[in-house]
Design a protein around this nucleic acid. Structure first.
Length: 422
RNA sequence: GGAGAGCUGUCUGAGUGGUUGAAAGAGGCGGUCUUGAAAACCGUUGUGGUCGCGAGGCUACCUGGGGUUCGAAUCCCUAGCUCUCCGCCA
């Protein structure tokens, strides 16, 4: 959510930004609603002032006649206040609805356009030149007996899966590797709830309900299954004032992630690439406005270090405005080389959300002088387990169908090779 | 799940329906004293919204929501959370 005063004072820039992102939002309408709300608020406050003055006249003993007059007057004011309060409630509802549609501003370094306009900054790692026809992870998962899609579909539904044998251990190893790695980087490790309140989801910038939602909600409650630990990590700091000396707050959280992925199916999303439930280690940072730009680069560097360490070739993308997602001011994706698809596929994503989430969550910073400021928030993927498994299986496969484990993971897996079962 | 107790400002903790934005203490900040510190003493010390160029004004906030009333921290209803006891349970 943007600051309404900012929208009012920078209306043209906000409108231009909405165009750049290709979203539907009406900044003028938001400001109109904001102004009428303020006008009403002023009227209500004035009436309340009258009411308070009227009431305080009755503190002392009064002749019955005088008191009756004042009570009558109080009753009149009461009715008027109630009317206006009804009106302002309506306007505020509409205002919030419209204001939520306005996306964050965008960094000038972001390429303008849609998904295809994201800019590849560079490639890292060497893409293997296979002397045989590489298999995709679905086939490898089958012959190695590490992924069971059929049982997933039977027991839970389409796009669910079981990891078994070395596959199960590999997930645990990856999570542990990621958590240990982040702890060494000075992040506080967290295991987080997989359920959060809808209001928290909204604060982070998710749409928990409606036709566009990617979120499972729990019937007859105001709770949802989380789509990422970003929600529960950021939520910790709702309605919180953080002392500047405690910044930056750096957290690394594990959670399961649940996504409805309505309408997303087809070849491009075969196998583990897009599923309804997966495990993920996520990083989340709260810092001062002056630090956030640099912090985004730090998060990107951490992600790059990890995928270099895992020996997975990747490229770095500076994401275009149209593909940013409402809260993000700037975003980098890492895309891993996936031989089974014969192309790069998103494996991490890190965003600087500036004050967009913190404003809704009411997360503020208090500096030495006691001044309060909205905090900046950033997030980034450490390990999105299924996509890392895809990358490892496909990049580390041997001609006989076995798969080597990246050396750095061996202390976590306890084995260095996945053997063939079929 | 059942029974009970509670939720007040940074913290502890008062608060008869009408000078209560809220006593008192602690803490914080500023100052006096001191070579320095402590102690003592003095002063100061919440947040949001809105109006105003400004000084400042108005308004709201005693867990959230609703109600009663001319007037609610105070009465009623409701939700949440915390604590104690019981039951169940990995």
């Amino acid at each position: 959510m943007l600051d309404p005063k900012y929208i009012r004072d920078n209306l043209e820039a906000v409108k231009h930004n909405i165009l750049k992102r290709g979203v539907k939002a009406d900044a003028t309408l938001v400001i109109d609603l904001y102004n009428s709300r303020n006008k009403l608020q002023f009227e209500i406050d004035t009436l309340r002032n009258d009411r308070n003055e009227n009431a305080s006249k009755m503190k002392q003993k009064l002749p019955e006649g005088e008191r009756a007059v004042l009570i009558e007057e109080g009753k009149n004011i009461k009715v008027k206040v109630a009317e206006l309060e009804e009106k302002i409630k309506e306007i505020e509802l509409k205002y919030t609805e419209e204001a939520m549609k306005i996306p964050n501003m965008t960094d000038s370094s972001c390429p303008v356009g849609g998904e295809a306009d994201s800019v590849e900054l560079r490639k890292e790692g060497v893409i293997r030149n296979f002397s045989f026809k590489p298999k995709d992870h679905v086939e490898l998962g089958d012959i190695l007996d590490v992924i069971d899609f059929d049982s997933g579909a039977n027991v839970s539904g389409q796009k669910f899966y079981y990891l078994k044998n070395e596959g199960a251990l590999l997930e645990l190893a990856l999570i542990n590797f990621g958590m240990q790695y982040m702890t060494k980087k000075g992040f506080t490790p967290y295991l987080t709830p997989d359920i959060a309140k809808a209001s928290i989801l909204e604060g982070i910038g998710f749409n928990p309900r409606g036709s566009e939602t990617n979120i499972y909600s729990i019937e007859n409650t105001d709770q949802c299954l989380v789509g990422t630990a970003e929600i529960t990590l950021g939520g910790i700091y709702r309605d919180t004032i953080i002392d500047e000396s405690a910044l930056p707050v750096k957290m690394a959280g594990f959670s399961h992630c649940f996504r409805t992925e309505a309408g997303a199916s087809g070849q491009a999303t075969k196998g583990l690439y897009r599923v309804h439930q997966f495990s993920k280690v996520e990083m989340f940072v709260i810092c001062t406005p002056s630090e956030s730009e640099k912090m985004l680069e730090t998060l990107r560097e951490i992600e790059e270090e990890i995928y270099k360490a895992l020996g997975i070739p990747y490229r770095v993308l500076n994401i275009a405005t149209g593909d940013l997602g409402n809260p993000a001011y700037k975003k980098y994706d890492l895309e891993a080389w996936m031989p089974g698809r014969g192309c790069y596929g998103e494996i991490t994503s890190t965003s600087n959300c500036t004050d967009f989430q913190a404003r809704r969550l009411n997360t503020r910073i208090k500096d030495k002088a006691g001044n309060k400021n909205i905090a900046h928030m950033l997030n980034g993927t450490v390990i999105a387990v299924p996509r890392v498994i895809i990358s490892i299986l496909e990049n580390y496969q041997n001609e006989d169908g076995t798969v080597d484990i990246p050396e750095i993971l061996v202390p976590f897996t306890g084995f260095s090779k996945i053997t063939r079962k079929k």
